[in-house]
Design a protein around this nucleic acid. Structure first.
Lengths: 346, 346
DNA sequence: ACCCCGTGGAGAACCGGTTTTCCAGACGGT
DNA sequence: ACCGTCTGGAAAACCGGTTCTCCACGGGGT
């Protein structure tokens, strides 16, 4: 039978362990570690405590801390689709900024199958996280309903989607980016320009389409064709085929996501169009892959990391002050010229 | 001045709130809610408690629970790169299985810049999660060192990588999948087959290369060429260009990741090779995008969701019993035939 | 010798759960 | 009427922190 002496290191060092070895009480250790400025303490005692805490590898227990402070220092980022690399960039920006502000980020994929999405509200109610960054695009999301019904119950910010009346939207200048895409195509001489904006009920699709239409009008043009289709390769393929068969005069296409562009390129090829001469393509959102397509794909790169970081800023601000507001990142997008946009041959 | 009556709903309902309204003590409520079978209680009292808890929307405070139980019911999944869709599939499998077993999964991207990676061990030490699913591929990872030094301090499992001596590896049959790819190419008549395995120091690259070599040998062949390059588009491009320029007799190429294949296709085109007739390509890992490339890309689809689920199984088993073991998912991969593999023309 | 004040820290309450121990009262048997 | 047993639940300790209140002690001034 082996008895554990009190000198034996336990599984983890606790505050009281540090206190015992330092010859003080745990309240002192807590205040030293947290840098309480109202504490008057002998410098040597302070350094002794800090050294012992370090020796023991002391780390505060997150649960105990959350219980005592009524806050966790964790934010949840809800994204609709992990395989969409757009969210990878947003996530990186959010992580970095959260870290900067002393928060951690918990990432959750908000798939439709997870019990209606109410689980995510539960993250906050059960005290796992302090607030929610909601990047889900689904229009009829039950979580969104709930957040709108009792907005103050749960700190939250909507990222890259627009929930009217929430006053908690942080977004990109999608209209501006779309206008830039139009300008780029027009500058190359295109006048018969089509677009695949994405599902009409989703706000990102609406915003990009709105900017597209408005800028065409500015140039005295109107859309050659608009065809919806979801944000996937298949959606781009279907929409582009529809456009190219029903409006063969189209010389340029603006797609709403990178993978839509992939689908659209395949659609063009399947109809015997040669890229880029028979059809110029530019897409919203950039990707490392753009350099390795044939033709290399011209894109509008968006400041996604900044979007994530700004969303964190807003959420932390909301946690601290209770104030909420909308914010749009006005600049930061840019056209990345590659080979998929050339002057029209007709 | 408004005074809050005790009838007023607080921010969240606590156990004691449910208890008061039920006319019992919180210990009873706790035992009822947790289904304590040793509790003898009047059925009507039980239903009353449950109804009131439901009415109040009671959710236990995760921190308090973790403090009391010394477990959180949360597992952390550490992945090296969020923009890699392979991990999206692994993550989905892990989420689903974790949910099944009553756990939640916290996702963390293990980027190199995050303070040496020791932060992740801290997730466990600080009581935020119960265990770690480590999918990071970096060979020299400080976290891996730490886990190897004190393996019992932190429950963990290595996913899709092989850490020798850890006895906590769960992986796919990469060698078998590579053998299947070789078989597929050989069945189409190829005898001059090259591979871009990826960075030589990473175990996934080694495992795929090993299976490739062994199966070629089985067919009485030897590799036409092997060129390393990282797992990205650029890595595939560079490696494929090297192969095609230095070993022009190559008729078929097996790449180690989907995006490597994208890069390799571009490399082939850049050298005037026509796909697939001048070069057949097959890649490890499938993607929805494969259907929209030119030519449509033949792949070896891996059971990634099952990998994630199995990893969770093993970690939960480790938490429950302290037992550890290696596990390889032997089957489940399959060739997805598309258009990028054709008989050689030479 | 006495008072006052600043220094340096002790002690206890509390956060919201879980779990173990214990007990009042009803009930049945003799 | 008394005893033992079972039923249904109360009470308290504990998990590991944070924070508020309070106090012992020593030095300086008069």
């Amino acid at each position: 039978m082996v008895t554990i002496s009190s000198q034996e290191p336990r599984g983890r060092a606790r505050l009281v362990d540090v206190a015992e070895r330092s010859g003080v009480t745990k309240s002192i250790v807590s205040r030293v570690i947290n840098g309480d400025t109202t504490l008057r303490i002998r410098p040597e005692t302070r350094t002794r405590i800090l050294r012992i805490a370090d020796d023991l590898g002391y780390r505060p227990h997150a649960g105990a801390r959350a219980l005592s402070l009524s806050r966790t220092g964790v934010l949840a980022l809800l994204i609709p689709d992990l395989s969409n690399s757009v969210y990878a960039a947003v996530t990186r920006g959010a992580y970095r900024q959260a870290r900067e502000l002393g928060y951690a980020v918990l990432l959750a994929e908000d798939t439709a199958d997870v019990g209606g999405g109410d689980d995510y509200a539960e993250l906050v109610i059960s005290g796992r996280v302090d607030g929610l960054l909601v990047a889900s695009a689904r229009a009829d999301h039950p979580l969104v309903d709930r957040l709108l019904r009792e907005p103050d119950a749960i700190a939250h910010v909507f990222v890259n989607r627009e929930v009217p009346g929430s006053h908690r939207n942080v977004g990109l200048d999608m209209a501006g980016a779309s206008a830039a895409a139009v300008d780029h195509l027009v500058a190359h001489g295109h006048r018969h320009i089509a677009m695949t904006p994405g599902p009409p009920e989703l706000t990102p699709a609406q915003a990009r389409l709105g900017g597209f239409r408005a800028r065409l009008e500015h140039h005295g043009l109107s859309p050659e064709a608009i065809a919806s289709g979801d944000f996937s390769e298949a959606g781009g393929y279907t929409a582009a085929r529809e456009i190219l068969t029903r409006w063969p005069s189209t010389t340029a296409l603006y797609t709403s996501t990178f993978v839509q562009a992939i689908g659209a390129m395949q659609a063009a090829r399947s109809l015997g169009r040669r890229l880029p001469h028979d059809l110029s393509i530019i897409t919203y959102d950039d990707s490392p892959m753009a350099d390795y397509l044939e033709p290399r794909l011209t894109t509008v790169a968006m400041p996604l990391a900044e979007l994530g970081a700004t969303a964190v800023d807003l959420l932390v601000e909301q946690l601290a002050s209770g104030q909420v507001r909308d914010l749009r990142i006005e600049d930061g997008f840019r056209i990345v010229e590659r080979d998929s946009v050339v002057p029209p041959t007709r």
